[in-house]
Amino acid sequence: MIGAVLGGLVIAGALVWAVSLGIRTRRREPGPPKAHEHPTLPESGPAHETSQIREPNEVPRAADESERLTPHQLGGPASKRSDRQERPRWDSGGGGSFGSGGSGRT
């Protein structure tokens, strides 16, 4: 019984010490930035997002079936800019993200 009480006191003391250590560490850290310290937009305004249609590069084939290609033989990026930059559009009345692609009327 005495061992359980002493163990509880040791654990409680360790928790009090850990909380006080956390409070002291938090006081040494700098506070949150003031309103005038936040970054501002550049004169030119926000950066604009660009998008482009990409297509996969061809994967090189090994000369022999038993040969394995190493990463430097595979090349750089896995895709390249497509020559055709028009986005594909859905035909009206067909396709879509729900169901079988029907008109939606039953």
Rank of each mutant, 00 (worst) to 15 (best):
34 K>E: 09
34 K>W: 11
34 K>M: 11
35 A>S: 15
35 A>N: 13
35 A>M: 13
35 A>L: 12
35 A>Q: 14
36 H>Q: 08
36 H>S: 14
38 H>Q: 12
38 H>M: 03
38 H>L: 04
38 H>R: 08
38 H>V: 05
39 P>S: 06
40 T>V: 10
40 T>C: 10
40 T>R: 14
41 L>Y: 09
41 L>G: 05
41 L>M: 13
42 P>E: 03
42 P>G: 05
42 P>F: 03
42 P>H: 06
43 E>M: 06
43 E>R: 07
43 E>K: 00
43 E>G: 10
44 S>G: 02
46 P>Q: 09
46 P>F: 07
46 P>I: 01
46 P>H: 10
46 P>V: 06
49 E>T: 00
50 T>A: 09
51 S>G: 01
51 S>N: 07
52 Q>S: 12
52 Q>W: 15
53 I>F: 09
54 R>P: 01
54 R>H: 06
55 E>P: 03
55 E>W: 13
56 P>N: 08
56 P>Q: 08
56 P>R: 05
56 P>L: 04
57 N>R: 13
57 N>P: 08
59 V>K: 12
60 P>K: 05
60 P>I: 00
61 R>Y: 10
62 A>K: 03
62 A>T: 03
62 A>N: 10
62 A>F: 04
63 A>H: 08
63 A>S: 15
63 A>C: 01
63 A>W: 06
64 D>G: 02
64 D>H: 15
66 S>N: 14
66 S>H: 14
67 E>Q: 15
67 E>L: 09
67 E>V: 14
67 E>G: 06
68 R>D: 11
68 R>G: 13
68 R>P: 03
69 L>D: 00
70 T>C: 01
71 P>H: 01
71 P>T: 05
72 H>Y: 02
74 L>N: 05
74 L>V: 05
74 L>D: 04
75 G>H: 09
75 G>I: 02
75 G>M: 05
75 G>S: 01
75 G>Y: 04
76 G>P: 00
76 G>L: 01
76 G>Q: 04
77 P>C: 03
77 P>N: 07
77 P>V: 04
77 P>E: 05
77 P>W: 12
78 A>I: 05
78 A>S: 09
78 A>N: 07
79 S>W: 11
79 S>E: 08
80 K>V: 15
80 K>Y: 11
80 K>I: 15
80 K>Q: 12
81 R>M: 06
81 R>W: 11
81 R>C: 02
82 S>Q: 12
82 S>L: 11
83 D>Q: 13
83 D>C: 05
83 D>K: 11
83 D>S: 07
83 D>T: 14
83 D>H: 09
83 D>R: 14
84 R>M: 02
84 R>K: 12
84 R>A: 02
85 Q>E: 03
85 Q>T: 07
85 Q>C: 04
85 Q>W: 10
86 E>N: 12
86 E>F: 07
86 E>A: 09
87 R>M: 11
87 R>Y: 09
88 P>I: 02
88 P>Y: 01
88 P>S: 02
89 R>P: 03
89 R>M: 14
89 R>E: 03
89 R>L: 08
90 W>H: 01
90 W>A: 07
91 D>M: 13
92 S>C: 02
93 G>C: 02
93 G>W: 03
94 G>W: 12
94 G>K: 12
94 G>Y: 10
